[in-house]
């Protein structure tokens, strides 16, 4: 076989793997070059997003099954959500996705100020999203629409006394169907809760990134972290796009 088989038999074989010349400091020792390192990190992020897809996949499956089974309950329960808040939040999140994308662009083109600004905007928009979510949640808590021991059916049995139901001109549900609104709210809280948790984690990382970016961390060519975080943030945005369509917009025309 050929002589090119350069397998190191002994430890003293030419230690030319020097940390000499053009190797930037952020290149970790086990990678051949920066390209490989960035590539591996990006690919790893995508694989991680796959696991996230499957994580939400279980919830979406449950949602689709029960929506089919208990459609009237899902319609009535979704009318309890505010389309205005939902749309605002969707817009906020889309905007934050945009600012995040701009942040990545700034990092790639080495604009430190632009990066810090974009990250700050993303951070703020994330907080706005969570703020609106808090308003929505507290409304549910007030109305006892949180599944569990204190769950209250009156909005669905007696829609005339309920502002949201009246606005949607809902008819009263029979008791057995009204009970199934609890399944809707179970899924609502599980899905939006998991999403909000991802937002909180994202915002925490954003805070750290702003801190580092001000020191010029990501604008010297090593943009992997910003890019990967961008992927995460966009993914969270996509989940919300579906949640909005599925949870808020069931049959608004009735």
């Amino acid at each position: 076989m050929s002589d090119s088989t350069a397998i190191a038999h002994d430890a003293h074989a030419a230690p030319d793997h020097g940390h000499g010349e053009a190797h930037p400091t952020y290149l970790r020792h086990h990678f051949e070059n920066v390209e490989q390192q960035a590539d591996a990190a990006g690919f790893a992020m995508w694989i991680f997003l796959l696991t996230e897809v499957m994580f939400f996949g279980g919830l979406f499956t449950a949602y689709l099954i029960y929506r089919n089974w208990y459609y009237p309950a899902f319609v009535a329960a979704s009318h309890q959500l505010s389309v205005v808040w939902g749309t605002t939040n969707t817009a906020v999140l889309i905007f934050s996705s945009f600012t995040m994308a701009m942040g990545v662009w700034c990092a790639e083109t080495r604009r430190r100020k632009g990066l810090v600004l974009s990250l700050c905007l993303t951070f703020l928009l994330g907080l706005v999203f969570l703020g609106i979510k808090t308003i929505e949640y507290s409304e549910k808590i007030e109305k006892h629409h949180v599944p569990g021991f204190h769950y209250n059916l009156s909005s669905f049995l007696d829609p005339d006394n309920d502002a949201a139901a009246k606005a949607a001109s809902d008819k009263a549900l029979p008791l057995d169907m009204a009970r199934h609104t609890e399944v809707y709210f179970s899924l609502y809280f599980a899905m939006t809760g998991m999403h909000a948790l991802h937002m909180i984690i994202g915002i925490a990382i954003l805070g750290y990134m702003i801190f580092r970016a001000r020191a010029g961390a990501y604008t010297s060519g090593h943009v992997t972290f910003v890019e990967n975080f961008g992927l995460y943030w966009h993914f969270v945005d996509i989940i919300w796009i579906y949640l909005f369509a599925l949870l808020y917009l069931i049959s608004r025309h009735q």
Partner: peptide, 20 residues
Amino acid sequence: ILNPSQHITQGYAPIMPTYQ
């Protein structure tokens, strides 16, 4: 008997209460 509102025979109003 337990979930009547999902099982209404054609021509009848969904008025049966649940016996759950």
